Simulated assay, not measured.
Amino acid sequence: MVLKQQTAEVFQEALNFYYEQKFVVAQKVFQNILQINPDDRVAMLYFKRSRKYRSNVRIPGGVVWGRNFDGEIGRILHALLSLKDACTKFKI
């Protein structure tokens, strides 16, 4: 219980990142918590969820797709994401 109290403030920050869908940062903060308290089951749950969701892409309309696409739709979505990344990089 002492370790849980010790990491409570940082845990809240990690939750904020998680609910802002900043999954990479959230995962790192949850990982830091787990280094201090490896038995924190709630931090482990959110760590695993952050790891799972960090590679997801939100497409307009609220649909969430993982980066591992299958079939023709997957190839099309992957091409669109690559194009979007290139446009962002070159400020088009």
Score class of each variant (00 low, 15 high):
R67C: 01
V42S: 01
Q21S: 13
N56V: 05
A43S: 09
E72L: 07
E72V: 15
G71K: 15
N16S: 11
K89E: 15
K48M: 15
A8E: 15
A43Q: 02
V42E: 15
Q12P: 13
L15R: 05
N68H: 00
Q5G: 10
F47P: 01
R75V: 12
A86S: 07
G62K: 10
I33P: 07
C87E: 09
V29H: 01
V63C: 00
V2P: 13
K48H: 11
N68F: 04
Q21E: 14
L80P: 11
M44F: 03
I36Q: 09
K22G: 03
Q12S: 06
L34T: 07
I36W: 03
I36D: 05
S50D: 06
V10A: 10
G74A: 12
L3W: 05
Y18S: 04
A43H: 03
K48V: 10
E20Q: 12
E72W: 08
E9L: 14
F90I: 04
Y18E: 00
G66K: 06
Q6I: 02
F11G: 03
I59W: 13
I33V: 15
V63Q: 03
K22Y: 01
G61T: 12
V42K: 11
V64P: 02
N37W: 00
V24S: 15
K84R: 06
F69D: 04
D39W: 03
D85R: 11
I92N: 06
L15Y: 02
R49L: 13
A26R: 01
N32R: 14
K84V: 11
Q12Y: 10
G62T: 09
P38W: 04
K91F: 07
Y53P: 02
I73A: 09
S50T: 06
P38G: 09
E9K: 13
V29F: 00
T7S: 14
N16I: 07
A79L: 13
R54K: 05
A14D: 00
I92R: 05
H78F: 14
Y53Q: 12
G74Y: 08
G62M: 11
I36T: 12
V64K: 14
K84L: 09
K84Q: 14
L45V: 06
F23M: 13
I33G: 05
V2Y: 08
F69S: 05
D70Q: 11
R75C: 06
M1H: 11
D40P: 15
Y53A: 06
Y19T: 08
V29L: 03
Q31W: 04
N37V: 00
F17V: 00
Y46C: 01
S55K: 10
A43I: 02
L45F: 08
Y19H: 14
C87V: 15
M1Q: 07
I92L: 15
K91P: 05
Q6Y: 03
V64R: 05
Q21K: 12
